[in-house]
Design a protein around this nucleic acid. Sequence first.
DNA 1: ACATTAAGTGATT
DNA 2: AATCACTTAATGT
Length: 212
Amino acid sequence: MMDLSRLSNLFEPALLRQMQEMGKYRKIEGGQTLIEPGQSIQFIPFILSGLVKVSRIDDEGREILLYYVNANESCAMTFTCCMDNHESEIRATADEEVELVMLPVSLMDEWLTRFPSWKKYVMHTIHYRFNELLKTLDQIAFQKLDERLIVYLKEKSKATGSSLINASHEQIAQDLATSRVVISRLLKRLEQDKKVLLYRNQIKLLQAFFEL
DNA sequence: ACATTAAGTGATT
DNA sequence: AATCACTTAATGT
């Protein structure tokens, strides 16, 4: 049977007993799917060990990684979804062998009011996950700007008929509606990748740059 | 030599 | 990605 005693620093004894009693223990092989988009949510999964990959499926059926759920964590989506009997928006798969406890959704309400530790845990999970998502979102936006900068430099080069661009990072930043620091970092990366050479107020586009 | 401006970096949100 | 704070490098006077 499952042993939840090591969670005692996370939840109060009374809650642990409830989890022990009401929760269903499950073990899932690596690669197995936990839940698919569209399926209704009946359980809150609490991961005891292993790693769960949570991803979103786009129109063309491609998978985009949202985040991983580690041991002692739970899926933030289910907290918000299950209150209103929503369907899953995500796919969850076991990245490696996973042990988990399935907690009935029906207990959520009661637990939130009865157990301070549960409330705290839920809040913490949602907050943590939200920040994780913000991070991935930023990365996507960052890649976009990266592309825009390359296009910008190419156009500038074409317009002047030269591979030597005359502009400060500040000016470029203003053109692309971003901050100087960001441009400096992107250019630095291009320099490290041997695509450009950087000088004061000047950028030399190397051969490799035009192959981007 | 000193002041000013451009660019580089780490940490934080 | 944006902002802040701070450092370092280049330029002008």
